[in-house]
């Protein structure tokens, strides 16, 4: 038998396979910007998780209004000082503590809405691309319709009807974002379903569902992961935008968009009130975007040659 000869072709000692994801991860680990961004993201996540710690250390609960020490007699916020490290807001609350609590909202909405978006987008994109025919026609038109809806206007109208809440924010964002994911997935699947390994699975007797999720899905994950990483900051900004427009979380819940919205009347008199929540939002979205860029580069097929 000639097989033994051929075994020598691969002399790599590693028995554990190097998955494309592993390879991408290795490339990602060498990307300094992405790694710094990741550290920042981790810090923000830690800040959100340990937000109560900020309240404990400063001694300022997030919703406590300090009218004597936190506000001027004319109701203006107080600047950064020994008591309020990042100053106070328009109700005399600690900006630092509220930024920490606001991170919870931003990340929760960012992750939850993105998860809904990606889940719905993948399922519908897979179904449209793989099943084709009437299913595809209907779903593709639906995708077009959803993508052409002026998101912010409808979101504003919808939230006006239902009233603002965390779940409605997540649902609204999810509902309007899945179409992009579905479109990406559909495009990928359209070419993937013609690949021989799909035919091979079929010849083995695999059904549509199995082929879709076992054979096709892993192959669309890379672009979806890239898109997802880049979607999270968009969702965070969208949530902040809705909050800014008064459609976010009901007060007194701290969230960055709401803080920025409240601070806009004070930009000449209380720079810290707009600066720090704005910076928090900026740094978070920047970190996610740079990290997303890194992920995209890591999954870029052109980078395959570097392996």
């Amino acid at each position: 038998m000639t097989a033994s000869l051929e075994m020598l072709e691969t002399s790599a000692p590693a028995i554990e396979g190097r998955s494309p994801f592993l390879l991408a991860f290795r490339r990602l680990r060498r990307d300094k910007v992405a790694m710094v961004s990741l550290v920042v993201i981790v810090l923000i996540v830690l800040m959100a998780v340990f937000a109560p710690l900020f309240a404990t250390i400063t001694g300022h609960p997030p919703n406590e209004q300090y009218r004597d020490i936190g506000l001027t007699p004319d109701g203006l916020p107080r600047g950064p000082n020994g008591t309020f490290w990042l100053g106070t807001d328009d109700l005399g609350r600690d900006v630092l503590v509220r930024i920490a609590y606001g991170a919870r909202v931003s990340l929760l909405v960012g992750v939850a809405a993105t998860a809904i978006t990606v889940a719905v987008g993948i399922v519908l994109g897979l179904a449209a691309g793989f099943l084709g025919g009437v299913v595809d026609t209907i779903l593709a038109r639906l995708i077009d319709v959803v993508l052409s809806v002026p998101f912010l206007l409808v979101a504003i109208a919808l939230v006006s009807v239902t009233g603002p809440s965390l779940s409605i924010t997540v649902l609204v964002i999810g509902f309007f974002s899945w179409a992009s994911v579905a479109r990406i997935v559909r495009g990928q699947v359209l070419s993937l379903r013609e690949r021989e390994f799909v035919e091979a699975a079929r010849s083995l007797g695999a059904g549509d569902t199995r082929i879709m999720f076992v054979d096709v899905l892993p192959n669309v994950l890379a672009p979806v992961i890239v898109y997802t990483t880049l979607l999270i900051p968009v969702v965070i900004v969208t949530q902040a935008t809705l909050s800014f427009l008064g459609l976010g979380l009901p007060p007194p819940t701290a969230d960055w968009g709401g803080m920025i919205s409240a601070s806009q009347n004070y930009y000449t008199t209380a720079w810290w009130f707009i600066l720090f929540p704005g910076l928090a939002l900026l740094i978070t979205t920047l970190a996610f975007n740079l990290f997303g860029d890194g992920v995209r580069d890591a999954f870029d097929p052109r980078a395959d040659r570097l392996r």
Partner: peptide, 30 residues
Amino acid sequence: NATEGSSKSFQTIQQDLSKVGITVVGVPSP
């Protein structure tokens, strides 16, 4: 909730009333 003065007054009254054992639940309106 989209009017600054209204929202601030609500939050302040909410905190005041909580000190006498009254729970205030916001009903935001456009």
